[in-house]
Structure formats: structure tokens, C-alpha cells
Design a protein around this nucleic acid. Structure first.
Length: 595
RNA sequence: GGUCCCGUAGCUCAGUUGGAUAGAGCAACAGCCUUCUAAGCUGUGGGUCGCGCGUUCGAAUCGCGCCGGGAUCACCA
């Protein structure tokens, strides 16, 4: 790319002028600010030391050198220590000619090297998905797309948490009060039906605890002695002993939940290449821990429990195997990491998991390192912040969760009413209209979630967040739809891209700014991948769409223009549309042709 | 209390390896539909980048110390 050439020329210039070896990558380059003349800017301040001249003079000398050594450069100017370089119009015209009709502009072709594993979603099968899961799923899916665009062989993994005491709680409540209710008989989605019993368990359990406390027990004692908890624990024991009835119930209820999840995943447009079930993998880590004990990197205490001592790393001791020999969460994660490593030999293993588990992943990596597993260094925890509501946090017990299915439904309904109010759905068939409302509603939701830096906590106001104006998904979709409409009109009027050839066409400043933003796209995809942040793509898309809208405003009526100018503008519109489409693909957002 | 993360306009968020006058949207106000989609565009007002010190040509960005908010520190997952 041209930036590289400029940097190399600058490095050469510095060497020749001031006899200093500077790596091209050590020189600062950036896109020139909007209101200043130039395309790229070099930061010359640091080299004033070597030249022993003022930054201005130094910049002029280097600028002169680059101008002479690179044919692409038209001119340069200097402001303080900023060397602003303008490229020849031909450079930008060539760029347009070469790329304007490349469908996959910005995307690397697929290389089949060792895969990247991306785990996301990882739901529990005792309740439906909520807003927090939505952030997880969208991040995981988008990140997978970004990795693919960067040429990686991506395996999307879902590790389903289908066993444990929390699952037994909803099973118990169903046994007691379910009265053979099914999704069909109740009209409830399977995951919601199971979730109903999980909540019921919690309510009943709380009442029991309250009663016991009134009889004089402490809260801790009450929580441990409540009959329902004891019964749930009994179910867990039976489950582990493969009790026929319990296993049957477990299978039935999980099947309901999976059917419910399937629908929600489909709505969100996310999918997986490999599904692991914790019920099948939860016993795996033990061997790893035992071997660590034999190698002497782990320690056994008097009661028989096994620990990792991480105090030298500034952390605490961490339990890996209980005194009764059963495994804990960490044991399971060690096992599942080893499993997926031996199955795929990935170059990277990414886990999309909330930031409340930062400590867990820190420990996981350190323990794997102690066990001498080289892949520990290739584990990345994409830690994302919580989604907060205006009136505090989401707590399932207090009924303040925002349910994923409800939210999706509301987004679509709002998209529908807004679209109808604007009178935009009139020309659509019922089917087309339905598809459109889905695309817009989900586009708004996805963009809203993804545009925020993953590591930050974010605020979601269910009322105010449903907006289709300004920095939103629908704005970008709308821009795309208008471009398609413009292209169609152009074609109808008889312009053909067949004859598209840019040579001496004068570029307006406005257009050039748009072209420069498009030019950046491949670099943006890279950056998003390096930072594991779809937000980079989202914010870029908005900048592009906004710039295009300004450009669009300037485009005069087609028929009043001379032909080649029109063709150039149509080509530029087409190119912009292509880039918008590609960017939206990376975010998992559909772009309707018409809206 | 230990560790980690966050703090930018009234609100929600951008801000590239430290760079030029810190940017968008929402909300408020004023304009623009006889022409390719007004879910748009143009303009106005709105800032002690939490506070202080330091590093240097230059700090929202890096370092240290405070203040505020969050997460986590279970023989739970």
C-alpha cells in the first residue's frame, strides 16, 4: 500500500539527509485531517533532533526527498512539524478503477492454515437468553466474521452448560408443580417454559429460607438446610448415578430448551460449527490435574484436595479438585481447553465471556502454563462489559432482566410501526414487508450493541435505544438502500458500467474524502481483528455512510450531467454500497435493497 | 482490604503507535422536500477530557497519587 512506500521513502530520506537509521515502522503516519490540504501526514517532530534544524525545515527537506523519489506524489506542504503529502489524482483514479467492482474488496481470500477457535454464547439450559447473552452472541458472531475476512479458518464453538445444580433446580420444580405441562400444551417457547420453573424454584426456596430464619437459623444455615435445596442436590446425585427417570426428564427438558434456543439463535442470525455439551466434557480435566500433581507443579492438601499455588504470580491458591475427588468449574475448563486443542490444533483460542470471569481466565492461563501447555499463550479472553439498564442492573431474581426474545420482538414491532408511519412499506408485499421489519429491527439492535467498545459496560435504555435516526444501524441500511435505488435509476437511464473507465475526470474534494474513507477499509478490518473489536467496524461504517450522505446531497440530477461524470459518480456510489455491504456482513447486519 | 476494568458535551458513545482547533448521534433551537428515498442534509448553542503532579517540542492518550463507579477474590457455574 501507498503508506508503506511513503514510509520507506521517508526512512531513506532521513538516512541520506541526516545519516540516521530509522525503521519505516517507527515513523508516524496518519490520514490528513479533514480541513487541511493533503492525503497523508508524516510526523516530523522526532527527527528535528537528528537534523539539528527546526521541525519546519526538516519537514521541508524530507518532503522534497519523498516528492522526488515517489512518482505517486503530487505535492506536499508543511505546517509546523506536520508534513502533509498529496497524492496525484491518478493514484486515486487507479484505485477506483482497480477496486470499484471487486465484490470482496477488503476481504482476504481464505487461507487454510491452522484454525482459530472462537467460543461464544455458552448458555445455561435452565432459563431463556437475555440481553447480556445478546451482547455475547453478537460479539462472538461478528468477531468470527472479522476473523474470516482476515483470512482465518474459523471454527465457531458453543459449549452448552447442560448439567449442574442449577439445571436440577428447574427439574425439581417441574417434577413438583409441572403437571406434565409441555411447550405445546402451554404455548410457551421451550426455554421460557423451563425458565418459568427455575424462577418458581427460586421463589419457593426463598420462602423456605425465610421460614427457617424465623425459627432462629442464620441465613447461611437456612440456605444449606432448606428442603428444596436438599432435594435438588439429591437429583444431582441421581443424575450423576445415571438414574433412569432423572436422565429421561433431563433429556426432555433440555430438548425443549434447545428448540427454544434454536429459534433465538436463528433470529439473531448466529450459528456454530461445533457444539460441546458440558455433560460430556465435565469429567475431562481430572487427568490433567493428576498429571500436574505427579509433575509436582500442583499441591495436595491433607484433606486430599488439589490446588494450584499462584501466590508467586500475585494471585491466590486456587482449588482444582475437591477433597472428594470431584471437579470444579476450573477443572472442567482445563479439560475442555485441552480437548479442543487436541481436536483442532488451533493457532488461537478465543473465549467470548463476560468480564466477571476475568480472574477465572487469568488463573486458567496460568495453570495451563504450569502444566507446560504451550497453547496457554494463544488463549484470548474477549472480556466484555455488562449491559446495564437505566434503573440499575439486570437481576433475574428481581424480574429486571430484559428477555432476548421479547426484546427482538419489540425491536421488530417498532421497526414496523415506524416504517409504516413513514409510508415506506406501501409498495411491499406482506412477505417482503415482514422481512424488511426484521432486518431493520435487528439492524438497530445489533448496531446499537456492537458499536460500543466490548470492554466497556454499556447502558441500554429499552425505550430510548430503539431509534432509527443518526448513528444507528437503520441509518446505514438506509444509505445502502438509497445507493441501490440510485444505481437502478442510473441503469434505467441507460448508463452502463461497461464503459466505465476513469482517466481525466476531475475529482471534487467531497468525493475525494469519500474515496479516502473507502480506501481505509482493509486496514480497518485488520485493526478490528487485532483489537478483537467489532466496534471498530461499526464506527467506520457510520463514518462512511455519513460521508456518503453528504456526497449524495451534492450529486445533481442524473440527466443534467455529462455522461462520464455520471458514470463516475454511479461507480463511486456502487463502490460505497459494496463496502457498506461488506462491513455490515462483518457485523451480521442485513442490508435491504429497498426501505 | 487485594487484583482488574471504566470515568470525554444534559444523555448515549467515538477519538489510530502520544500530534494540528477533542468529534458524532440523541435532546433544544433555526433552515432545506416540483428533481435519483427528508430514516436525510445544513446551521446555532453546549467541554476544567473526574482531580492533582510528573514525563516532553507536544498528553484525553504514557507514569505516579487521589476521587467516583463497576467486576472479582466459594470445596457455585
Amino acid at each position: 500500500m501507498i503508506e508503506k512506500k511513503i514510509l520507506e521513502a521517508a526512512a531513506k530520506g532521513i538516512k541520506q539527509l541526516y545519516h540516521q537509521e530509522i525503521g519505516p515502522d517507527k515513523i508516524g503516519i496518519e490520514k490528513t485531517k479533514k480541513n487541511i490540504k493533503g492525503d497523508f501526514t508524516l510526523l516530523i517532530f522526532p527527527f528535528a533532533k537528528f537534523s539539528r534544524k527546526s521541525p519546519e525545515t526538516t519537514a521541508h527537506e524530507i518532503g522534497e526527498f519523498i516528492l522526488e523519489s515517489l512518482s505517486e506524489i503530487k505535492e506536499y506542504n508543511v505546517i509546523k512539524g506536520f508534513l502533509n503529502i498529496s497524492l496525484k489524482t491518478d493514484f486515486w483514479l487507479d484505485f477506483i478503477s482497480e477496486n470499484a467492482f471487486r465484490q470482496e474488496y477488503g476481504f482476504h481470500t481464505l487461507r487454510m492454515d491452522s484454525p482459530v477457535l472462537i467460543e461464544y454464547s455458552s448458555p445455561n439450559t435452565n432459563k431463556p437468553l437475555h440481553l447480556g447473552h445478546i451482547r455475547n452472541n453478537l460479539l462472538g458472531f461478528s468477531l468470527s466474521e472479522i476473523a474470516r475476512a482476515n483470512g482465518r479458518n474459523v471454527i465457531k464453538i458453543n459449549l452448552i452448560n447442560d448439567r449442574g445444580i442449577h439445571i436440577c433446580k428447574s427439574m425439581l420444580a417441574y417434577q413438583k408443580w409441572g403437571a406434565n405441562e409441555t411447550p405445546d400444551s402451554s404455548g410457551l417457547k421451550g426455554d421460557h417454559l423451563v425458565g418459568k420453573y427455575y424462577v418458581l424454584f427460586d421463589q419457593q426456596n426463598k420462602m423456605e429460607i425465610k421460614d427457617l430464619m424465623e425459627k432462629g437459623l442464620t441465613e447461611d444455615e437456612a440456605a444449606k438446610q432448606a428442603p428444596l435445596i436438599l432435594e435438588a442436590q439429591e437429583i444431582l446425585r441421581k443424575w450423576e448415578a445415571r438414574d433412569k427417570d432423572i436422565i429421561q426428564l433431563w433429556k426432555t427438558m433440555n430438548a425443549w430448551v434447545y428448540e427454544g434456543f434454536r429459534e433465538t439463535y436463528q433470529s439473531l442470525g448466529v450459528d456454530f460449527d461445533k457444539i460441546y455439551y458440558e455433560s460430556e466434557t465435565y469429567l475431562l480435566g481430572k487427568k490433567l490435574v493428576i498429571s500436574g500433581l505427579e509433575k509436582g507443579v500442583l499441591v495436595r492438601k491433607e484433606d486430599g484436595s488439589i490446588w494450584a499455588d499462584l501466590r508467586e504470580d500475585g494471585l491466590d491458591e486456587k482449588l482444582l479438585l475437591r477433597s472428594d475427588g470431584t471437579s470444579v468449574y476450573m477443572t472442567q475448563d482445563l479439560g475442555s481447553a485441552q480437548l479442543r486443542y487436541t481436536e483442532y490444533h488451533p493457532s488461537e483460542m478465543i473465549y467470548v465471556v463476560g468480564n466477571e470471569q476475568n480472574y477465572h481466565f487469568d488463573v486458567l492461563k496460568r495453570v495451563l502454563k504450569k502444566l507446560n501447555k504451550g497453547y496457554a499463550d494463544h488463549i484470548f479472553h474477549l472480556s466484555y462489559g455488562m449491559v446495564e439498564l437505566p434503573h440499575g442492573k439486570m437481576k433475574s431474581r428481581e424480574g429486571t432482566v430484559v428477555d432476548a426474545d421479547d426484546l427482538i420482538g419489540e425491536m421488530i414491532a417498532t421497526a414496523e410501526s415506524t416504517t409504516r408511519e413513514l409510508g415506506k412499506a406501501n409498495e411491499f408485499t406482506e412477505d417482503e414487508a415482514k422481512k424488511l421489519f426484521r432486518a431493520i429491527g435487528l439492524g438497530a439492535l445489533k448496531y446499537f450493541i456492537l458499536k460500543v467498545d466490548p470492554k466497556k459496560n454499556m447502558l441500554f435504555d429499552p425505550v430510548e435505544s430503539i431509534d432509527f435516526n443518526g448513528n444507528t444501524g437503520p441509518f446505514i441500511q438506509y444509505t445502502f438502500a438509497r445507493i441501490q435505488s440510485l444505481l437502478k435509476k442510473g441503469m434505467d437511464t441507460g448508463f452502463s458500467f461497461q464503459s466505465f473507465k476513469v482517466d481525466d475526470i476531475f475529482l471534487l474534494d467531497q468525493e475525494k474524502n469519500l474515496i479516502k474513507i473507502i480506501y481505509q477499509f482493509p486496514a480497518i478490518i485488520n485493526e478490528a481483528w487485532a483489537e478483537l473489536s467489532p466496534a471498530v467496524i461499526a464506527n467506520y461504517s457510520y463514518e462512511l455512510a455519513k460521508e456518503y450522505n453528504q456526497f449524495y446531497q451534492e450529486v445533481p440530477v442524473l440527466k443534467e450531467e455529462e455522461d462520464r461524470k455520471i458514470i463516475f459518480r454511479l461507480a463511486l456510489s456502487s463502490f460505497t454500497g459494496q463496502v457498506i455491504q461488506n462491513a455490515m456482513k462483518l457485523l451480521g447486519i442485513d442490508v435491504p435493497e429497498k426501505m
